[in-house]
């Protein structure tokens, strides 16, 4: 029983990171119909930034959370304005290809600027302390991860549901043309979605690096893809769906490794994408999604 609970806790901790990534993907996809393949690479940049903060003697460690969040938020906006904005109105495929290009660009500028070699990522001591609650072993980082996701989720849903920009975001994701026509500055709305989503990706970078203790320029691509899977499971366009989808994916992935014989663990990625196909075929709108027809 303890083992099951332990796996569940680990799954939720991993799922929280997927959730943070998935929120950004789902917001952007909702409005622009763009799978931002570069989203995971923004997470990677966030991880590197966190490493810089932690490694520096001059910056307070507390900022290891804040700096990646803020800087990557801005970086996301920059990517949007330079690479995606010129493609407004272009076919979906053009945006998709561009985002692949951006992903490669970010990876290789990291390779060029730093090194292709993985480097270790050391968390500050207090975050690695672990303790037991009811037989489950958790680290401070796990707690921080779960806590941040809950807080951010609440904050974000207040923002989306109550604020003027949030309202405009929902309108834009339902019908971009109509939103533009009634005088919403959709570029602001899209920019806001990128800033928010990328900021969360930057934060996820710190958490991911802390969890695995190692960072490299290509670390972001697969988590990015998996986060998209999470967003699809939850129902693309829905923030609540992204969070729930992320949690489901995290728990399923950890469960797959934890409860099946070890020779299967190499197939965990295969399992994740198998899950994606299953969801797409059985319930293409995910758990909380609305059909594309309804949003037309």
């Amino acid at each position: 029983m303890d083992y099951v609970l332990q796996q569940l806790a680990n799954g939720l901790a991993l799922g929280s990171i997927y959730a943070l990534l998935a929120i950004g993907l789902t917001m952007v996809y909702g409005i622009l119909r763009l799978i931002n393949f570069a989203h995971g690479d923004l997470m990677m940049l966030g991880a590197y930034l966190a490493a810089v903060v932690i490694g520096s003697a001059y910056i307070p460690i507390v900022l290891a959370v804040l700096v990646p969040t803020v800087v990557i938020g801005i970086a996301g906006l920059l990517v949007e304005r330079t690479a995606y904005k010129p493609l407004r109105g272009a076919p979906e495929v053009a945006m998709l290809i561009t985002s692949l290009g951006v992903s490669r660009l970010l990876q290789n500028s990291t390779v060029m600027g730093l090194s292709p070699q993985p480097r270790s990522f050391k968390l500050p001591g207090d975050l690695t302390t672990s303790f037991e609650i009811a037989g489950i072993r958790l680290t401070m980082l796990d707690l921080l991860t779960l806590g941040l996701v809950v807080v951010l989720m609440v904050g974000l849903s207040v923002f989306i549901n109550k604020s003027r920009t949030g309202m405009a975001m929902r309108a834009s994701s339902e019908n971009l043309q109509a939103a533009r026509l009634i005088g919403i500055n959709v570029n602001h709305v899209i920019g806001a979605a990128f800033v928010l989503g990328s900021a969360l990706a930057g934060l996820a970078g710190f958490l991911w690096a802390g969890r695995y203790g190692i960072i490299d320029p290509f670390m972001g691509f697969e988590p990015g893809l998996k986060a998209f899977v999470a967003a699809v499971i939850g129902g693309i366009g829905s923030i609540r769906g992204a969070v729930v989808g992320g949690m489901i994916l995290g728990v399923a992935e950890i469960g797959f490794v934890g409860f099946l014989p070890p020779e299967f663990s190499g197939f965990r990625d295969a399992f994740v994408f198998g899950l994606l196909l299953l969801v797409l075929l059985v319930r293409p709108n995910g758990l909380f999604g609305t059909s594309e027809v309804e949003r037309a």
């Binding site: 003027r164 309202m167 929902r170 309108a171 339902e174 109509a178 939103a179």
Partner: peptide, 17 residues
């Protein structure tokens, strides 16, 4: 082209964006 998933009040408010 109203926003079907938003409330009626929200639709009207967006007109005054």
């Amino acid at each position: 082209l109203i926003f079907g998933r938003l409330s009626i009040a929200e639709n009207l408010r967006l007109g005054a964006y």
